[in-house]
């Protein structure tokens, strides 16, 4: 706790956060859904959109920075899983191989592929649900910490950089 007090900026309370900020923070989550729908065939567009949104909004306030960053980093793994799925699906479709049967003893390529497909679906579903919850919380001026990503985003947005408060004192040259 002490560490938190000394190394991190205090978190703002719901009443102190203006509506404008809350909406920008919520937008970080919601715009991903639009971008994700647009970028489905090539799941890289949503990542670009998230990056742009993050850089445009991060300077506005720590609260927005936290939410935008959390939204950005939490979708990176999901996006990578989706890209892998698209790639694998095309590969299976255009190039048949039985090499997996020889390499892995746990199952045929199809079985491994279906496991991956289901895992990716679950990842997307979880991302979707938690993003919605986070968006609503942000709208209310609250925090919502995802597992792992939440702490990372908090650290990123609220950590006090040691150089941050250094007061620069001008001195005359030493004679």
């Amino acid at each position: 706790m002490e560490e938190t007090n000394s190394n991190y900026h205090p978190v703002s309370q719901p009443d102190d956060i203006p509506t404008r900020e809350r909406e920008d923070a919520m937008g970080g989550y919601l715009m991903m859904f639009a971008a994700m729908a647009a970028g489905l065939p090539l799941p890289i567009i949503n990542l670009l959109a998230a990056l742009i949104y993050f850089y445009v909004n991060k300077a506005k306030s720590r609260f927005i920075k936290f939410h935008a960053y959390q939204s950005l980093i939490s979708q990176i793994p999901t996006t990578m899983l989706n890209a892998g799925l698209v790639f694998w699906t095309f590969r299976l479709f255009f190039y048949q191989s039985n090499t997996f049967d020889d390499v892995f003893s746990i199952g045929s390529e199809y079985e491994i592929y279906w496991g991956y497909l289901i895992m990716t679906s679950i990842a997307n579903l979880l991302y979707f649900i938690f993003s919605l919850i986070a968006a609503f919380r942000a709208r209310k001026g609250q925090f919502y910490y995802f597992l792992f990503f939440g702490k990372m985003a908090y650290h990123y947005a609220y950590h006090i950089n040691s150089n941050e408060n250094k007061v620069i004192v001008n001195k005359p040259p030493s004679i």
């Binding site: 496991g115 792992f148 702490k151 990372m152």
Partner: peptide, 23 residues
Amino acid sequence: IDKIYKELAILLIIFIGIWVVFI
């Protein structure tokens, strides 16, 4: 910040677990 890697490990284990189970 050091402790969050524990959470990352938990996430990885969960998802790889899901993958293996559904194989």
